[in-house]
Structures are given as C-alpha cells and as structure tokens.
C-alpha cells in the first residue's frame, strides 16, 4: 500500500508531466482556453492512460520484445478510438471543441512513455497507481492553466459539461466590471505560452526555495 501511494503521488508533484517533465504540452496549450475543455481532455487522458497501463502491464510477459512498441501503439490507439467515439456520441459539443486533439492523444508522449518506462516492467497494481498519479497530475496542471486563461481572458468561468451529460444546470460566474473588458489575449494562442511559461517558472522557483 505504501508503494501504491508513492507511485500515485509522484505523478502529481515531483514528476508532474506538464510543469516538471514538460511532456504532453500540445494539448495542454491548445485546448486549455476553457475549463470545460480541460475537464474533458483530462477525463479522456486518464481513461486511455489507465486502460493502456492495465492491459500492457497484464500482458507484459507475453509481448514479444521486438514487437513491443507496435503492440503498445495498437493498444493505445484502440483506447483512444473508443474515447473519441464515446465523446462524439455523448458530449458532441466537447468533441467538437477538442477537435483533432482528442485523436492526437494517441501520440501524447505521456502515454507511450508510461507504457514503455513503467507498465511494461511493473505489476498491474502499481501500474494503476502510476496511471492515476500521472493522469491526475496532468489533469491538475490542465485545470490550473484553464482556470487562469478562461478567467483572465473572458472575465468569468462557466462549466456546461455537466449540462450536456446529465441535464443538470450550468455553473457560471462572471466578474461584472472585468468581463466587459477582459484580456482577450489569454484565450488566444499567445496567451497559452505566457501562462504556461510563468507557471513553470513559479514551480521551479518554489523548488529552488525548498532546496536552499
């Protein structure tokens, strides 16, 4: 159990995929202009990561060594296609706004990286912990980035994801004076680079403070 929590927490903190390892940056920058996108993308990545980690770790002894990477790629691509089809049917608006970044999870360095570096060498239980930890680390990073971008860029936050799924009401919050003149650059593409650059610097600065 101790090792489970160790594998789990490392993904969120010391090897956070976005801020520390700088992996999986493309979706983190591209779709993080709204909180809805961030939540949807995180759910998709966690599902694929968990599914592929479980299957690959369970099959690790029977996969022929020279066909390792092609096998991993087929397994990951299968899970990505399932996610894409399910999103298309049940959350069409989200499917539309994630665009090609949903199928592009298949080339996300985080997922193949975990398959190769962790799941193909470790038992199922720790691979699940690893997938959940790295997945949540990715999700947290995405949520922080999107909160900042959506709030600064539109002057408010709104979530309509649950409305599409369960017919629940949508949550939204706007800052009255600010939302009339928001800093639109944050929802545009240059703003993504700015927010992630500053957050990375902040993470490092905290790390350096701790070391001193």
């Amino acid at each position: 159990m101790a090792s489970f929590s160790k594998e789990f927490s490392k993904g969120i903190t010391i090897s956070n995929p976005i801020f520390i390892l700088a992996l999986g940056l493309c979706p983190a920058l591209a779709i993080s202009y709204s909180l809805d996108n961030a939540l949807g993308m995180s759910a998709a990545v966690i599902f694929v990561l968990l599914g592929s980690n479980i299957i690959i770790s369970a099959a690790r002894r029977i996969v022929p060594n020279i066909m390792r990477i092609p096998t991993f790629i087929v397994i990951i691509a299968t899970f990505v296609t399932i996610v894409t089809l399910v999103f298309q049917a049940y959350v069409p608006n989200l499917y539309q706004s994630l665009g090609i970044f949903l199928p592009l999870i298949v080339v996300n360095c985080i997922i193949l990286g975990r398959a190769e570096a962790f799941a193909s060498k470790n038992p199922v239980i720790s691979s699940i912990a690893d997938a959940l930890g790295i997945g949540l680390g990715f999700a947290l990073a995405l949520i922080v980035i999107s909160l900042l971008r959506e709030f600064l860029g539109t002057g408010g936050i709104s979530i309509s994801l649950f409305e599409q799924l369960f017919n629940a009401g949508s949550l939204s919050f706007t800052l009255p004076a600010f939302s009339e003149h928001p800093l639109a650059i944050f929802v545009l593409s240059p703003g993504a680079f700015l927010v992630i650059g500053l957050l990375m610097a902040l993470f490092r600065w905290i790390g350096q403070k701790k070391n001193d």
Partner: peptide
C-alpha cells in the same frame, strides 16, 4: 524552458 515559452508568446 520558461523563458523559451515567453519568447514563443512574443513570436506568436
């Protein structure tokens, strides 16, 4: 990396 991101913003 962080300064490279800021540079990328200006390029963008």
């Amino acid at each position: 990396l962080p300064i490279a991101f800021i540079t990328a913003m200006l390029l963008g």
